[in-house]
């Protein structure tokens, strides 16, 4: 049984309170089509469980097979630096099929941030270390592909359809 070795921390991207009964951590890649399929299911789960579920997203870009994964992750981190992480996170998954540089700049402008500033941060790779930290922690916890989920710190190895995830959550300690 694989366990999450990096507990939820202050620098994580978190939706929901620390007093929630369950914490679902996703290691994901914005260019991974399977993560794209999981996205609406996670939204459904959040709606269904509301304050009883805390959701955490961590970066796990497969850079060698997904050319845009790192840029997308850095764009979301850029948005995060301006307090708009979840807006960008959602937009990236909702527009996954158009994931190209042009989209990153368009979405940045759309949420009221500066495309020039994004450009500078991508060139200087200032968010890369933060993404690496997520990635390396994930590897150590046994993340073996994307998406990988941890429910209350234990890796969820089953499928991720709504019913299966809900059942695993309900059964988690």
């Amino acid at each position: 049984m694989n366990r999450l070795l990096v507990p939820v921390h202050a620098n994580d991207h978190i939706q929901g309170g620390a007093d929630a009964e369950w914490t679902l951590v996703e290691y994901g890649d914005y260019q991974c089509p399977v993560c794209g399929q999981a996205y609406p299911i996670l939204k459904q789960l959040q709606e269904h469980l509301r304050h009883r579920l805390r959701f955490v997203f961590r970066n796990f870009p497969l850079r060698q097979i997904h050319r845009m994964a790192e840029f997308a992750a850095e764009t979301a981190e850029f948005a995060s630096a301006h307090g708009r992480f979840w807006q960008m996170h959602d937009l990236l998954f909702e527009n996954q099929e158009d994931l190209e540089s042009e989209l990153l700049f368009r979405l940045t402008t759309k949420i009221g941030l500066s495309a020039d500033e994004l450009q500078q941060s991508l060139v200087s790779e200032i968010y890369r270390d933060r993404i690496d930290l997520d990635f390396r922690g994930g590897i150590r916890s046994g993340v073996n592909g994307t998406p990988t989920f941890f429910i209350n710190g234990v890796r969820h190895d089953g499928s991720f359809d709504f019913d299966t995830l809900l059942r695993s959550i309900a059964e988690a300690d």
């Binding site: 694989n2 150590r140 916890s141 046994g142 073996n144």
Partner: peptide
């Protein structure tokens, strides 16, 4: 049918080289 991930390999390398996580 299960992808074993890389965590076991890295732990083994830690032990071999005395490096900590």
């Amino acid at each position: 049918a299960v992808n074993p991930g890389a965590d076991g390999i890295l732990e083994a390398l830690d032990k071999l080289t005395g490096k900590t996580m």
